[in-house]
Simulated scan of single mutants.
Amino acid sequence: MLRSSAWPPSARHVDTTGIEETAGRPDSSPADRLTVARALASTTPLLSAGTAGRFLATLAAVAAGDVATARTVEPHLDALGILDQAGMPAPAGSTWGVFAAEGPGLRLDATVQDDGTALLTGTKPWCSLASTLSHALVTAHAGDDRVLVAVDLRQDGVTAHDEAWVARGMPDVPSGPVDFDGVTAQLVGAPGWYLRRPGFAWGGIGVAACWWGGAVGLGRVLRSLAAAHPESELLQAALGATVIDLADAEDALADAAARIDRSDDPDAPDVDWPLLAQTVRSRVRRTVDSVRERVVATVGPAPLTSDPAVAARVADLELYVLQDHGVRDLARIGRIVTERGGVAW
């Protein structure tokens, strides 16, 4: 699966085929996918300098097997990495999400206590699998500060609204809002720590690795069809364009992994991590959109109406990449470069 020469040494021995085979199927249950997440957490090193190649390649391989499983695995691994950076152990057997989105008209407030705990009151949007997970890392407002807290979701006062999730993509990964009514949580790091650490940008690149892996799975659909019809110039051209798109996105991810793996080297060049992460995410988003639209236009309606795996992958990817905000994130790149540089030209 890995072809780019930019991948660092930590990616060289990832068994992507084996990971894909254990990643589940489109009809897997949330519980089955969380079993995969726990299993991978026991064998995959947390994202850090020296492990990024293996970590990103693992996520990509999971998504190549099943996009919804990757959507389940990625936040679990991300949360474990954040807890490790904060020096906080995760309870044995726990399953984790990361709820950090904001939404208009919704606010989650944290009343910080002297003992390092907080009481949560309000509503948090976009809480994936909140009714299934045991725990989550959640961002909340503490006055003018943003804090990160660890929450046991099995407490009284936690109400997940799965009924609000009507998406056709990832229908069994409900991501509705959650109400918190005086729920106890544990502070993780100092106020603002979650957003300031380099690992925040690295985690965003991990999500992009899932997008790319999902698009690889679609590319394989097109490759199989082109192999079955070698006389079709249309299919061969579509496959060629897809090869180029996927290679561009893989190079972006592999280069980012190499930079992360070198980040603890005092001789490594400085990296503007927010700029790098957003550039990688936007490049991968562009690839996924291009591949998805091309595959759908080229293969016709039959696979989308008769093959559950293909239909699920198309719908799941279309929704998943909307975690990137399109033009608004391109504008963010422009603002970063205008304010502090970051491009050679």
Results as ranks from 00 to 15, higher is better:
residue 6 A to V: 03
residue 10 S to Y: 12
residue 14 V to M: 12
residue 15 D to H: 09
residue 15 D to L: 11
residue 25 R to M: 11
residue 29 S to Y: 03
residue 30 P to V: 14
residue 36 V to Y: 09
residue 38 R to Y: 11
residue 44 T to S: 05
residue 45 P to R: 12
residue 47 L to I: 07
residue 53 G to K: 04
residue 54 R to G: 13
residue 59 L to R: 02
residue 60 A to C: 05
residue 66 D to V: 07
residue 67 V to K: 10
residue 68 A to M: 10
residue 68 A to G: 06
residue 73 V to W: 08
residue 75 P to L: 15
residue 80 L to R: 02
residue 81 G to L: 12
residue 81 G to A: 14
residue 85 Q to P: 00
residue 87 G to C: 09
residue 89 P to M: 14
residue 92 A to I: 12
residue 92 A to Q: 15
residue 111 T to I: 09
residue 115 D to P: 00
residue 115 D to F: 03
residue 123 T to C: 09
residue 127 C to K: 06
residue 154 R to D: 12
residue 157 G to C: 00
residue 160 A to M: 10
residue 164 A to F: 03
residue 166 V to M: 02
residue 170 M to A: 08
residue 172 D to G: 02
residue 172 D to Q: 11
residue 179 D to N: 08
residue 210 C to P: 00
residue 211 W to V: 02
residue 218 L to M: 07
residue 226 A to Q: 03
residue 227 A to E: 15
residue 236 Q to K: 06
residue 238 A to R: 12
residue 276 L to R: 05
residue 281 R to W: 07
residue 291 V to A: 05
residue 300 G to K: 11
residue 308 P to L: 13
residue 316 D to F: 03
residue 318 E to T: 08
residue 331 A to V: 01
residue 334 G to C: 01
residue 341 G to K: 10
residue 342 G to Y: 07
residue 343 V to S: 01
